[in-house]
């Protein structure tokens, strides 16, 4: 499969910027969805990467803090493998928000598919 980044796009910076914008919202949904099961930062990042959604540490870890501040996640310090780690999990509010976001996501996805399946110019 061709990596879109390998394409000789006329304005790679513009593409990067648009790609970043597109990913930003999706990443939040992905993180919330992944945290239906408990994770700490590093394992969450690995789990997302295993699913094909790699996120930089410097993006993910502060994002977790922000989502927790917004009440969408809860966290707990716990010892694992003789080391204290901060485990995150989706809060009740987070679950409700995730449901709403997924509904929105599906609606957008459906609309986009309909638009893309129209013959050109219609």
């Amino acid at each position: 499969m061709t990596n879109p980044l390998d394409l000789d796009t006329p304005e790679p910076q513009l593409f990067d910027s648009l790609r970043l914008e597109l990913r930003r919202g999706c990443l939040i949904v992905a993180v919330l969805a992944q945290l239906r099961a408990e994770h700490y930062g590093y394992t969450l990042r690995k789990a997302l990467a295993d699913e094909g959604l790699a996120i930089e540490e410097s993006t993910l870890y502060p994002l977790l803090r922000r989502l927790e501040t917004q009440g969408l996640l809860t966290s707990q310090w716990r010892e694992e493998d003789k080391r204290n780690k901060r485990f995150y999990r989706l809060s009740e509010q987070g679950e409700t928000t995730l449901t709403l976001l997924l509904a929105e996501w599906n609606a957008i996805n459906d609309s986009l598919h309909k638009i893309l399946n129209h013959p050109k110019g219609e």
Binding site: Y40, G41, Y42, T43, K46, E57, Y61, R83, R86
Partner: peptide, 16 residues
């Protein structure tokens, strides 16, 4: 708090 969390994450990464 932030540094402790970063330390744990980085140490896990290094362990791996």
């Amino acid at each position: 708090d932030t540094l402790a969390e970063l330390r744990a994450n980085l140490l896990s990464q290094m362990d791996d």
